[in-house]
Design a protein around this nucleic acid. Sequence first.
DNA 1: CTCCTCTCGCCAAGGCCTCT
DNA 2: AGAGGCCTTGGCGAGAGGAG
Length: 785
Amino acid sequence: MHETIKWTNHSTSILQNVKIKAPYTDAYLACSGKVYEVHRMILSSCSGYFQEIFKQTSTETPFIIMANIKSKFVEYLLSYMYKGEVNISEKEIEELLDAAEYFKVKGLSQAVLNKEPSSQSKYSRDFNASVISDLTFSPPRKKKKTNESFPSYSKKGQINAYEPYLHQGPFNYQTFQHPDPHIISKVQNYESNMNLTIPNVNSMHSQILWKEGGADMKRPDQMSAQVWNQHKTVQEGFGAELMNTLANSYSKGQEYHQTTDKTAELKEGEENFSGEDSLSDLSEMYSSDEDPVMASKIKKIVRKTYKNMLTKFKTQGSGFKGTSISLQGRTLITLSTVSKGDGRRHNARVNYCYFCNSPQTQIWRHIKNVHKSEPQVTRICELKGSNDQKQEIEFLRNMGNFYHNKEVLNAGNGELKVYRRLDNNTQLSFKDFIPCPKCLLFLSRSDLWRHYKYKCMPQSAAPNGRPTVGHLGHLLFMSSVILGIQGNFKKSEKKVITRLKTDEISDIAIKDEVIMHLGSNLFENVREDRFSVVEQSMRLSARILLYVRRRLNQHYLTLYQILRPSYFAYVSEAIDVLSRYLQTEEPNSLLASLSSPELAYQLTNLVRKCLAVKLGMALKAHNEEDKIETNSFVNSLDKLLAGFASFNGEDKNLNMLEVDMESEVVIVEDTGPADYVNEDMMWEGNRVFDRELHETVSALAEEVSISPPNARSVAALKRVPYTPTENEAIFKYFGELIDKGQMIKKEDIDRLFTSPTYAGELNNRSWKNIKYKVHNLIQKKNKQP
DNA sequence: CTCCTCTCGCCAAGGCCTCT
DNA sequence: AGAGGCCTTGGCGAGAGGAG
């Protein structure tokens, strides 16, 4: 919302036509790399500060460098001084007035100085009429009173992964154990599968790379050794190099357009493929003179690779692993929907293959045929139609979709595969979908209740058939853990930062990446009026961090660094101290300002959330080591939480946090202050390290109008069913050969067409179609036992 | 109960490799 | 380049089963 501050009595007769950068300027203001040409007369007449400066300076055109103010506020002030009005957002008013006060800008600064304590708002009063008679903006909304207690669980059953069970008292972690050892082992197996994200992703990664590297390459087991070696050479040799080259040129944005145009020519004649020039060196490196056939094949692969990658760039915006780019102002993550109203709405649901990540309409058939050599598939096949087999297949399908969804969320574009496709009227965002921690199915938050209750919740967890808040809290926590971080949080980061109190604790929070992610994550998931949850969580995390820093006398530790097993003892000690289970030596310090008896429980849960964030970061960075460490920390914390099971609120002397101080702490080197947030980030809300790339890609996206990719890789088939007459004709003319299992030849068909006895039943079919038909019939016959 | 989506078997139609 | 062979995939429709 923008407001206009208007200085109605401004001497418009003289100044209205004077603009910044007009001729006859006689001074410069410099701020944040920008230089403004200004008029001394105007500035000194409007600002006591500049009046003083210009009085003191004897230079002809003074160059004034303004520190400690953001260039946009300089612009606001200049606009105000020159034009008598300024358009700013509500939030910026306070800072503008501060700046105006500092620079003694008449009207604006007096407005601040002359405020009356009794006035309802300092902005709404009638200011000194001779200077300023009318402020046309309304007073900013009062900031909500901070609610110091945690918010209650939503009564409507709306699940929010981030405000779940904190004040509901402890839940019994034990209740998640299933009495059936078979199921327990299966769940453990699933859970360990979940934990094995990286190996799976890695294998997928290589296969995706495989797909990217060569056009429609088959997997190794499907191609001959010779071709395999060719592809392998290409893949291992310059595949990566090629990708880097393209990535660079893409981010530069220059060559992209040239090469895109050139791919268009490619369709008409491959000889014109000019993109090849830039790759000829690469391909020559890997082709040999002695084997021209091989050389030409490799050349062909290079061309296809290049072409494919360009197509990929064009359709998806960013193709590379590890560069997570979400485009500013638009979400490219879509949800799978059922097409309606076009008459042709039977599109079978598409699932993604767990092994090769390809979209499939019949996923089990695909897995059974293509990946039959995978041990998991062999095992499932052996189950032969049992209920277990059904479950295993379902889980495999969910896993495939889960990893696909993770890719989509990390890349910031693509289509999320959710439990049931939405109809076009459903207003749900991709943010509303989270995976079931047990079966990995993506469900909307509200559906997760029902799903978990009937499908995935162990029976012992809910003796009366109803999940409790504790169960769901656990469920949602697990869900957020396995999902990790969903993307960049630019807008929310900005909001979070600008709303935090300004003190040492907040300062720590802002400079810590994990806490910022946590805050953004929470912010995206709570209602506007629940901001206190976000603020409190961030500040509590910062307190934990601060405690560990002081305890170890390492003042540049980050939360990411301390959330590893070797620091576990210190983190739990921090929880103890902060919740007053242990006495702190600094009773009046920032650390000691909390005293709720249930705080230990709250803090422990908060640390779990931070761990979810860290795990997400580790997964995103494909950092195997951090992932394992984080999971191990989670396990330790779970044990700690299990200790709360006996906590009944009365026994406050419970010795529930047994701290093992013997464990070894890895001392990290002090590397200087955390540099996560800088001024730019505060105001632009951008992640510092992604910024350049982000801007380039945003600009490119505008130009090439990137749209979400269509998953369909194969052109739709034009299927013409055989009529009974045609079927009869096939058997009439070729029945004998089909019985023998002998393929027909083209000459057989030609002979038929020219035969005098042929009645023309198959005139609508080409010889190839007839061949297919006969072939399929033979295949079918062979399949029958 | 009705409405709707999903799954799976069947069919038609490729894709791609090898051979000639 | 065409033919033959093997393997795989999308569309369609029936029936299963979930949601309300």
